[in-house]
């Protein structure tokens, strides 16, 4: 693997080819906010909080640093005006969805967001998908997944798999959930007397 040199916020950084900008930045000690990135999981690019501005010599554009691979000679700005504007609004949008989440409050302090101008919605999940991807990629069980699309998207355990697999695993996904609400979702599959309709058992 050859090495590339890039500039992140005026600091020269060396990185291995194939790394993402986020990885390179984290290695060099930069703190780019992200809610969906996890070291053990494949890059996802869902939360968009890690958006940065990159100039590759031809043009400057906004890219998602957790999926954008490093290239030799690029200049990265992690806190440009545009970037900060995006992060602030994304935090506000998420705040409206799940106001109690600690990770949001922490980033909120950094970016001066302690309220939202949008109507607050009723959920606690920020749909980062870490649990879903952890179960699929690391445990290879797919005991939970996304259901629905758009604003109706939600994380659900699939009881017929969960009842078999989750006890074995012991809830590793709970510990990576940035919100802490996942266990209650799982608990629903464990209600005493819960039986599966036979048509699901095939």
């Amino acid at each position: 693997m050859s090495e590339v040199t890039l500039t992140i916020d005026d600091k020269e950084v060396k990185a291995k080819e194939g790394m993402t900008v986020l990885e390179a930045a984290q290695e060099a000690g930069f703190d780019i906010p992200t809610l969906c990135h996890h070291d053990k999981l494949a890059p996802y690019g869902g939360c968009r909080l890690c958006t940065v501005e990159v100039n590759d010599g031809r043009r400057t554009r906004l890219v998602t640093s957790c999926v954008y691979q490093v290239k030799d000679g690029i200049t990265v700005k992690t806190e440009s005006e545009k970037v900060v504007r995006i992060r602030k609004l994304l935090l506000e949008l998420l705040w409206a969805r799940a106001p109690g989440v600690q990770a949001l409050r922490d980033y909120g302090i950094k970016y001066g967001i302690d309220r939202t101008k949008f109507d607050i919605g009723p959920t606690c999940c920020i749909l980062c998908g870490q649990c879903v991807r952890y179960c699929a990629e690391v445990k290879k069980k797919n005991a939970l997944g996304f259901v629905g699309r758009g604003i109706r998207r939600q994380v659900m355990f699939f009881p017929e798999i969960a009842v078999e697999e989750c006890a074995k695993c012991g809830g590793e996904c709970f510990s990576i959930c940035p919100t802490g609400v996942l266990p209650s979702n799982y608990a629903l599959t464990q209600l005493p007397g819960f039986t599966f309709p036979t048509r699901f058992l095939g």
């Binding site: 939360c47 995006i86 994304l90 949008l93 998908g129 629905g148 758009g150 998207r153």
Partner: peptide
């Protein structure tokens, strides 16, 4: 569009909905 958004990324899912 709000209905057809897949919901993977925040700006499209939450932004278009708002």
């Amino acid at each position: 569009l709000a209905d057809e958004s897949c919901g993977k990324c925040i700006p499209c899912r939450e932004g278009v909905y708002q």
